[in-house]
């Protein structure tokens, strides 16, 4: 088991557009303080921002657990909400169930999950329709 250098959990509330992005920017600051390479911080931050907005748009609430070791940064975003019935379809760039309000907020382009997948080194989606979705992703830093 890798020894964590840093670990913190954040609550994200569904529908909270006014604060959407604050968790991702907070984690970015922490990563800077930890001295993680800027290009790796950027990749992680893109994944975090998309994951945070996904919770705000589609779930009731979630816990985002962020853990840094000497080898990697590991994030688990476990939400309670509607879940995803067809994960493969949801991973298709451009496919979206976003409402007009979500698009007016600048999201819902159908790029959320693909952006996360393309920004990290490991990515996994587990979902139970009607229960919720858990995203797990890793950015290697060593």
């Amino acid at each position: 088991m890798k020894e964590p250098l840093y670990a913190e959990s954040f609550k994200i509330r569904g529908g909270d557009f006014e604060h959407g992005g604050e968790v991702a920017t907070r984690i970015k600051s922490i990563c800077k303080e930890l001295g993680i390479r800027p290009d790796l911080i950027r990749r992680l931050s893109i994944a975090n921002f998309e994951a945070e907005m996904n919770v705000i748009m589609y779930a009731d609430e979630a816990d985002l657990c962020f853990q840094v070791s000497t080898e990697d940064v590991r994030v688990v975003v476990a939400d309670r909400g509607q879940g995803i019935s067809d994960i493969e379809l949801a991973m298709t760039p451009g496919w979206s169930t976003a409402t007009a309000e979500m698009r007016a907020r600048g999201f819902g382009a159908g790029l959320g999950l693909p952006n996360i997948r393309n920004s990290v080194d490991e990515f996994r989606v587990d979902s139970r329709p009607g229960a919720g979705t858990t995203l797990t992703y890793v950015v290697r830093i060593a």
């Binding site: 006014e18 959407g20 992005g21 604050e22 991702a24 920017t25 950027r42 921002f49 907020r105 600048g106």
Partner: peptide, 10 residues
């Protein structure tokens, strides 16, 4: 909106 700022930060 505020997301334009957070995106800019990222």
């Amino acid at each position: 909106n505020v997301q334009s700022l957070h995106t800019a930060e990222i």
